[in-house]
Amino acid sequence: IMRILIDADGCPVIKESIKIAKKFGLEAVIFCDTSHYFDEENVRTVFISKGVDAVDFAILNNLDKEDIVVTQDYGLASLVLSKNSYAINQNGMIYTKENIDELLYSRYISKKIRNGGVRLKGPKKREKSQNYIFEESLKKLILEKIEK
Rank of each mutant, 00 (worst) to 15 (best):
D33A: 09
E66T: 12
L76H: 04
V13K: 05
A54M: 08
T45R: 13
I88L: 04
I48T: 13
F24D: 12
A58K: 13
K15I: 11
I48C: 04
G25N: 14
I68V: 13
D39T: 06
L63I: 06
S17V: 10
T71W: 05
E66Q: 14
C32L: 08
E27G: 00
D33L: 04
L26G: 08
G75Q: 02
K23T: 13
E16K: 11
C11N: 11
N84G: 03
E66A: 13
E40P: 07
T34Y: 12
L26R: 01
T71F: 07
D73H: 09
F31P: 00
C11G: 05
K22M: 09
I18S: 11
Y74E: 07
L5I: 06
I48L: 10
V70K: 00
T71E: 02
K22W: 11
N62I: 03
D39K: 11
K23S: 12
E27F: 02
F38P: 00
Q90W: 09
L5F: 10
I6E: 03
S82H: 08
D33W: 01
L76N: 08
L26A: 06
F38N: 10
S49H: 14
G25I: 05
I59F: 01
K50H: 13
Y74G: 06
S78E: 11
V13M: 07
I6P: 03
A77Q: 04
L81V: 07
I20P: 02
L81T: 05
S78M: 09
K83V: 01
K50T: 14
A58S: 12
I6D: 00
V70I: 15
V70R: 00
L76P: 12
N42R: 11
K83A: 07
V29C: 04
F57D: 06
F38V: 01
S82A: 14
I6V: 14
C32Y: 05
K15C: 08
G51H: 10
D7A: 03
C32K: 01
I48Q: 10
K15M: 14
S78I: 06
V46E: 13
V29W: 07
I68R: 00
K22N: 15
R44M: 10
F38W: 09
E16S: 13
L5S: 00
S78V: 04
A8L: 03
D39I: 01
I59K: 05
K23C: 12
N61T: 05
S35H: 14
A87P: 09
K50R: 15
L63D: 08
F57K: 11
A8W: 01
I59N: 06
A28C: 08
V70Y: 05
I18L: 09
S82T: 08
N89T: 02
N42S: 11
T71Q: 03
